[in-house]
């Protein structure tokens, strides 16, 4: 309930701000035409501009709805009523997923995010295991892992992309995944190191009295002990992956993906495209976080930890 109130408040502020910010254009137009506009005449004109400084919520919503092609997809479904049901579904899906729509761009971004996320998890956990196992790794690599995160990855992004195309990789998926993995491995690394080290001396000694070797200690104690930490880091990691993918789509040349839509909107001065892409990215982030949350809860249940 408080959440809804605050959301309502934000909507109100948003409308007020769009009236305020878009009014300049209305007054300019009027001045050029040599007419006067009253406040009451000005307000409706701020709600429907083609290139508003700040589009009001309903305009963004409409653009998003159109971009997602759900409404028009439903129409396609209705119009093809005379055909077999499978064909109708096919046609509808084709329409929704067509390259013009945000669903398609969102899917491209999602694919990049998942690749980066997977790479990040793999790399982060392997590195964590090596760091916990070998003291040298801990001392040599850990400080650099921390420093690596203070380097703004975005500085590397354009270069990674051009270099990979120089090396003959025309596909943009690889560089995007690299950038996204660079951002997401760190939370996994830090949590896994903490988790693998979480068993206390007493538990370790107990296993040793059973005559357990290093491998058994790792499999039976350290790894299971690290799992709650691992799952807790996934939410942060997936959000970081998404940021990485979008950043990877920003530099010149990209035409697919939500990041590319933002860039195109910016270059062609189409604020509505930017806003729609931004909200599509927010929706995607929400879906990813919810999905990871579900995975986390299932895993916790299986491991018997109260969620």
């Amino acid at each position: 309930m408080p959440v809804l109130t605050v959301l309502g408040l934000i909507l109100v502020i948003w409308y007020a701000a769009s009236v305020w910010m878009n009014s300049t254009w209305v007054y300019d137009q009027a001045e050029r035409a040599g007419t006067m506009v009253s406040f009451a005449e000005m307000v409706p004109q701020t709600m429907t501009q083609e290139r508003p400084l700040l589009p009001p919520p309903h305009q963004v919503g409409a653009e998003l709805w159109e971009g997602l092609r759900l409404g028009s997809g439903y129409e396609v479904f209705l119009q093809s009523a005379d055909q077999p049901i499978l064909d109708r579904l096919q046609a509808t899906l084709d329409h929704v997923f067509s390259k013009k729509g945000l669903v398609y761009h969102g899917y491209v971004t999602f694919k990049g995010t998942m690749m980066g996320f997977g790479l990040g998890i793999l790399f982060g956990s392997l590195l964590a295991m090596a760091i916990v196992r070998f003291r040298v790794m801990d001392m040599s690599v850990m400080p650099w892992a921390i420093i690596s995160q203070t380097i703004p990855i975005v500085a590397l992004a354009p270069m990674i992309i051009t270099v990979s195309s120089q090396m003959g990789l025309t596909d943009r998926d690889v560089p995007k995944a690299v950038i996204s993995a660079y951002l997401s491995f760190f939370p996994v690394l830090v949590s896994m190191v903490k988790g693998l080290r979480s068993p206390d001396q007493m538990q370790l000694d107990l296993l040793k009295t059973y005559g357990a070797g290093e491998g058994a200690v790792f499999l039976k104690l350290r790894l299971p002990a690290s799992m709650p930490y691992f799952f807790a880091s996934l939410k942060v990691a997936v959000a970081a992956s998404l940021v990485g993918t979008i950043v990877g789509e920003l530099p010149t040349g990209a035409i697919e993906g939500l990041g590319a839509r933002m860039l195109i909107g910016s270059q062609f001065g189409e604020p509505l495209i930017m806003w729609a892409a931004l909200f599509a990215a927010a929706i995607l982030a929400g879906l990813l976080i919810v999905a990871v949350g579900i995975v986390e809860r299932l895993a916790r249940k299986r491991m018997g930890v109260p969620a």
Binding site: V3, T5, V6, L7, V154, V236, I246, M262, L263, M274
Partner: peptide
């Protein structure tokens, strides 16, 4: 406490969003 309960979940969510996406809009402004 009312505002906190309302703002915190939203803040948490927004903190996880790719806010870099706002960059082109803010550059426009």
């Amino acid at each position: 406490p009312f505002l906190q309960r309302g703002l915190l979940p939203i803040g948490n969510f927004v903190a996880a969003l790719p806010i870099v996406g706002l960059a082109p809009i803010l550059v426009m402004w």
